[in-house]
Design a protein around this nucleic acid. Structure first.
Lengths: 145, 145
DNA sequence: CTTGTAAAAGATAAAAAACTCTTTTATTTA
DNA sequence: TAAATAAAAGAGTTTTTTATCTTTTACAAG
């Protein structure tokens, strides 16, 4: 809808890992891919990226895998989105004009401002750790089937 | 921000043609491309498409060009978006889940519903003809430079 | 009815995004 | 310290999106 496909996978993967590693466990890449219905190698790349940016943590070798530490759990969904898609969604013009601004607005500027601000608020308010309970209770889902 | 680049061009082109053909004049493809800062051949393709879908009108030959008739002026921006990008933006899940729904929601379902509904309202409320005055008055812009 | 004009149509090309495969590095454990 | 494991890194490939170029068709005016 508003994110790149890569970013959609990223958010789902992070939420999944947050839930599965709530108790300190580590989650392997295959389990993650299966858990969110994504191509294994593709989500591996994405998590590599998020790992570099310290949004998720990982360890190699036996019993290794991905997890999310206490600090990272407090990060917002906006941090994931910014890491993957940049700030396009938070600052971009609805009609794609690079120099669209309050002082030189596109015809839809003020309407889109409302939409952007709502997206901003939503993604900044929600933390990575916020979804565990609802997922555990089976009240929400991050997998197709 | 939320549309494909093709769709951004489409909206800008339609708004431009609506303004320029307000008095019944026809607008050539080169003028349109220059008027909205888009690649000539690319916007030509897009307008061809919009013409087939009767969102814009055109005539060939000398003094030909694109214009927008009285009926089409009443159409909404949502009609343009649907023609180019489909209904993805109006109905799609924020996390890309195909079977996300009220009864099997993604963790962000209700938040995204608010965003989608605002986008829907914005695009359905605005008609193609709505922007002439503001553009004529120099209060808004659809061109970079 | 011929010539010039302008959009329509079709075919390609380039760039970006999405996805895959192979090799390397780090870590654990026997 | 060797073997097994799992992520990191790197090097493709495929698909989709964006953009370009050429030919055809329609129309108007002389």
């Amino acid at each position: 809808m508003v994110f790149s496909k890569t970013c959609e996978y990223a958010i789902r993967a992070v939420i999944y890992v947050a839930q599965k590693s709530e108790d300190g466990a580590k989650v392997g890449i295959k389990e993650i891919a299966a858990g969110i219905d994504s191509p294994v190698h593709f989500i591996a790349k994405i998590l590599q990226d998020l790992s570099k940016r310290e949004i998720v943590q990982s360890t190699k070798g036996p019993n290794g895998g991905f997890y999310i530490d206490k600090d990272s759990r407090k990060k917002s969904l906006a941090d994931i989105v910014t890491a993957i898609d940049g700030d396009r969604i938070f600052t971009g013009c609805g009609l794609g004009l690079k120099n669209c601004s309050e002082s030189k607005p596109c015809p839809l500027h003020s309407e889109f401002k409302i939409i952007r601000d709502k997206i901003k608020l939503t993604l900044h308010s929600a933390t990575i750790g916020d979804f565990n309970a609802s997922l555990n209770a089976g009240l929400s889902f991050i997998k197709e089937r």
